[in-house]
Amino acid sequence: MEAFAAITATAPKETTNLLTVKETAKHLRKSEKTIREYIKLKVLPAVDANRNTALRPSYSILEADVNAYVKRLRA
Protein backbone atom coordinates (compact mmCIF):
# COMPACT_ATOMS: atom_id res chain seq x y z
CA MET A 1 0.00 0.00 0.00
CA GLU A 2 2.87 2.38 0.77
CA ALA A 3 4.36 1.80 -2.68
CA PHE A 4 1.06 2.75 -4.32
CA ALA A 5 0.85 5.92 -2.24
CA ALA A 6 4.40 6.85 -3.24
CA ILE A 7 3.63 6.34 -6.93
CA THR A 8 0.43 8.37 -6.87
CA ALA A 9 2.08 11.16 -4.90
CA THR A 10 4.79 11.61 -7.53
CA ALA A 11 2.66 10.94 -10.63
CA PRO A 12 1.58 14.04 -12.55
CA LYS A 13 -2.08 14.88 -12.10
CA GLU A 14 -4.00 14.66 -15.35
CA THR A 15 -6.88 16.93 -16.08
CA THR A 16 -10.20 15.15 -16.25
CA ASN A 17 -12.16 18.14 -17.44
CA LEU A 18 -14.89 17.29 -19.89
CA LEU A 19 -15.67 19.71 -22.69
CA THR A 20 -18.82 20.03 -24.75
CA VAL A 21 -18.74 20.23 -28.54
CA LYS A 22 -19.31 23.99 -28.25
CA GLU A 23 -16.42 24.46 -25.80
CA THR A 24 -14.13 22.29 -27.93
CA ALA A 25 -15.05 24.26 -31.05
CA LYS A 26 -14.24 27.52 -29.28
CA HIS A 27 -10.93 26.13 -27.98
CA LEU A 28 -9.87 24.87 -31.44
CA ARG A 29 -11.39 27.83 -33.32
CA LYS A 30 -13.49 25.50 -35.46
CA SER A 31 -17.23 25.19 -36.00
CA GLU A 32 -19.37 22.81 -33.98
CA LYS A 33 -20.14 20.97 -37.22
CA THR A 34 -16.41 20.42 -37.80
CA ILE A 35 -15.94 19.07 -34.26
CA ARG A 36 -18.85 16.64 -34.76
CA GLU A 37 -17.24 15.52 -38.02
CA TYR A 38 -13.89 14.99 -36.23
CA ILE A 39 -15.72 12.83 -33.69
CA LYS A 40 -17.45 10.86 -36.46
CA LEU A 41 -14.11 10.31 -38.22
CA LYS A 42 -12.49 9.37 -34.86
CA VAL A 43 -9.99 12.23 -35.07
CA LEU A 44 -11.19 13.30 -31.62
CA PRO A 45 -12.32 10.63 -29.15
CA ALA A 46 -15.61 11.43 -27.42
CA VAL A 47 -18.29 9.85 -25.29
CA ASP A 48 -21.97 10.12 -26.20
CA ALA A 49 -24.01 10.79 -23.06
CA ASN A 50 -27.23 9.93 -24.94
CA ARG A 51 -26.01 6.59 -26.25
CA ASN A 52 -28.74 3.96 -26.68
CA THR A 53 -31.48 6.56 -26.67
CA ALA A 54 -33.49 8.22 -29.41
CA LEU A 55 -32.03 11.61 -28.47
CA ARG A 56 -29.47 13.52 -30.50
CA PRO A 57 -25.88 12.65 -29.54
CA SER A 58 -24.51 14.77 -26.72
CA TYR A 59 -20.76 14.40 -26.82
CA SER A 60 -18.25 14.95 -24.04
CA ILE A 61 -14.59 15.30 -24.93
CA LEU A 62 -11.69 15.09 -22.52
CA GLU A 63 -9.63 18.26 -22.38
CA ALA A 64 -6.51 16.07 -22.41
CA ASP A 65 -7.63 14.59 -25.77
CA VAL A 66 -8.10 18.10 -27.19
CA ASN A 67 -4.63 19.07 -25.98
CA ALA A 68 -3.16 15.88 -27.48
CA TYR A 69 -4.85 16.72 -30.81
CA VAL A 70 -3.32 20.20 -30.79
CA LYS A 71 0.07 18.69 -29.96
CA ARG A 72 -0.24 16.29 -32.94
CA LEU A 73 -1.03 19.22 -35.23
CA ARG A 74 2.06 21.11 -34.11
CA ALA A 75 4.38 18.12 -34.57
Rank of each mutant, 00 (worst) to 15 (best):
D48E: 09
R29M: 11
T10W: 02
E32N: 14
D65H: 11
P12K: 08
N67I: 07
L19W: 01
M1C: 13
A11R: 05
R29Q: 13
P57N: 01
N50Y: 06
V43E: 10
L55Y: 15
Y38M: 04
Y59L: 04
A5M: 09
H27S: 11
K30C: 07
T8L: 11
L18F: 12
L44Y: 00
R56W: 02
S58M: 09
A46P: 08
N52F: 14
N50V: 07
V66G: 02
A64Q: 09
V21L: 03
L62E: 06
I7K: 07
A46E: 01
A75E: 13
A3Y: 10
F4C: 08
L41W: 04
H27V: 11
R74F: 05
S58I: 04
R51Y: 12
K13A: 13
A68T: 09
L62R: 08
Y69D: 02
P57V: 03
D48L: 00
K26S: 11
K22S: 15
N17K: 13
E23V: 00
A6Q: 15
S60A: 09
S60N: 12
N67Y: 03
K13G: 01
S58P: 00
T10D: 12
A75R: 11
L55T: 06
A9I: 03
A6Y: 12
E2F: 08
T24L: 02
L62G: 05
P57F: 03
T8I: 14
Y38L: 03
L73Y: 07
A9W: 04
A54K: 10
T53C: 11
R74K: 15
T10K: 09
K26Y: 05
A54I: 05
V43R: 09
I39N: 00
D65I: 03
D65Q: 06
N67M: 14
T8D: 10
T8N: 11
A3T: 12
Y38C: 00
L73F: 01
N17R: 13
V47S: 11
L55W: 10
R51P: 05
E14S: 13
S58G: 08
D65R: 00
E23L: 05
K40L: 11
T8M: 15
A49I: 14
R56P: 00
V66W: 01
K71H: 09
E63N: 05
S60Q: 14
A49E: 10
L73K: 07
T16D: 10
S31I: 04
S60I: 00
K40P: 04
E23D: 07
A6R: 13
N67H: 07
Y69I: 00
V47F: 15
K22F: 02
I39A: 02
T8F: 15
R74P: 01
E32W: 05
